[in-house]
Design a protein around this nucleic acid. Structure first.
Lengths: 205, 205
DNA sequence: CTATGTGAATTTATTCACAGCA
DNA sequence: TGCTGTGAATAAATTCACATAG
């Protein structure tokens, strides 16, 4: 295979494939074709094959893909082949829902620390995680936590993001509606739930 | 302007513009140029102008855009110019966080009803909304609620989505990791938080 | 024969560059 | 002059179509 820059869209789809494959694996499936996987996901089979081909291709011609092998490969690409420790900053309504959310596990993501400013929350334990003061954020470097979920109020977002970066965090899932200004070696993915709901009326009403 | 199919990507960006413009308006700003708005959002100015041009263009040459006018126009395009009533199905951790989330208001979205199966939750009031039995979902048609947020367990997702469609809902924000099979006049936007976090390690670790 | 892997073709989205209007 | 609106150019992503390997 010749050199190709890997499209961002391909990376965006990998976790979708992974989720479906994990489900199939759980059901005891061993093999899958691009055609069938595409049908399950509503994608085009060529797109699936092309996505995998950027990484060398994981299939067997005439046969298809071995599901567990494919899972291993995608996890490796996404660097999810080892457990990734994550910190949560801001244990409000959304934050505490996230602390209790079980959907991260399948991806090898584990929330290992939670922080808040409110004295009434500090010390409380949610889902086995003791809430710490945000002043303890600097300890993330020592604890080798490189990922963070930010769910503080909007006006505290930039400030806390800055602290996270200073504490060695290099990837932030920003659940606030704030635009974060960050050094460009830091990856920020912003996810404002309201913005998704706001697109629905256009299509349907 | 000649006829153009409006790109989905344009629609995806409109709520981003709207959010920023609302913020600027709040701060008392009156006018904005595509150049400045682009700078705020990290976009290309031509893209912003082109996005607006699909709808006829809202600016004044040599001057820029009148912020409040632009807000009005975007809201109209997104059909957010009147309050859109939304139902929440599934009042678990995530669901109750959403019931208490204040970020929908700026878009004219209001959660007006919440449903769950659990007898221990039915009748409870969260943020002014009384939780009803899912058996009451059929009443959505009468109550003219056309949008829904689905945050039930994965294995209950399809079933509840079907009920929603039968109750007249035409747009669903699917917060479960389930693939929903729906008639194609129903718009589903799926948002699995874990999938966003799962992309971070690729970029940064 | 079957289903992958991949150049080529096509479609879609972004950016350029400038005409046109306040 | 200054900034919009927009065709044209470019870039990116998707899909086709087929050679190739099992």
């Amino acid at each position: 295979m010749r050199y190709h820059k890997i499209p961002d869209e391909t990376i965006r789809r990998l976790p979708i494939y992974l989720r479906e494959l994990l489900l199939l694996s759980e059901k005891g499936q061993q093999k899958i074709s691009s055609k069938l996987l595409a049908e399950f996901l509503g994608f085009n089979p060529a797109q699936i094959r092309k996505d995998f081909s950027y990484f060398g291709g994981f299939g067997i011609r005439g046969v298809g893909y071995e599901i567990n092998e494919l899972i291993k490969n995608i996890k490796k690409i996404l660097k999810l082949n080892i457990v990734r420790k994550t910190a949560l900053v801001g244990v409000g309504n959304l934050g505490s829902a996230i602390l209790q959310y079980s959907g991260f596990k399948v991806y090898g993501l584990e929330i290992k620390a939670a922080f808040d400013t409110s004295p009434s929350k500090i010390g409380k334990v949610i889902n086995g995680i003791k809430i710490e003061s945000v002043s303890k954020l600097t300890g993330l470097k020592r604890r080798k936590i490189k990922l963070a979920i930010l769910s503080v109020p909007r006006n505290a977002a930039q400030e806390n993001a800055d602290i996270l970066v200073n504490s060695g965090v290099s990837g932030i899932l920003n659940l606030t509606p704030a635009r974060l200004v960050m050094p460009k070696n830091i990856k920020v993915i912003t996810l404002d739930i309201a913005m998704y709901l706001a697109r629905l009326p256009y299509y349907t009403l």
